[in-house]
């Protein structure tokens, strides 16, 4: 099975990279969160395909389910933050968030 492992990894890497590029390029807060979701998809594909390659698909499946649950609670928190930011600043532009600087 491990001869197909690299194929999954190729696509997982593509997803993670697309997400990271999105994180760098986008300015809309919701877009940033979507980019994070794409990274998350890549990572869960990576986890599951690793389990497949090791013939440990059941364990990997358990890991992915946990990963998805974590993702949900993260997205809910982040969206609640975004709605609050929208109320405060009246926009969704990351550039309006420059009061604090590193």
């Amino acid at each position: 099975m491990s001869n197909t492992w690299y194929l999954y990894l190729f696509f997982a890497a593509a997803l993670v990279f697309a997400g990271l590029l999105g994180l760098l390029a986008k300015r809309n807060l919701i877009k940033l969160l979507i980019a994070i979701e794409i990274v998350g998809k890549g990572v869960s594909l990576l986890l599951l395909s690793t389990g497949l390659a090791k013939a440990h698909i059941l364990t990997a499946q358990a890991l992915v389910v946990t990963y998805i649950v974590i993702e949900v609670s993260l997205v809910a928190t982040a969206l609640a933050l975004i709605i609050n930011i929208r109320r405060q600043t009246g926009g969704l532009d990351i550039r309006s968030l420059t009061r604090l600087k590193g």
Binding site: L23, L32, I36, Q88, L97, R99, L100
Partner: peptide, 17 residues
């Protein structure tokens, strides 16, 4: 407050990465 939300959002972004 505005600063709190901004800080939390940036923290979340980097932390997720």
């Amino acid at each position: 407050g505005r600063d709190e939300l901004e800080a939390a959002f940036k923290y979340l972004m980097l932390s997720v990465v």
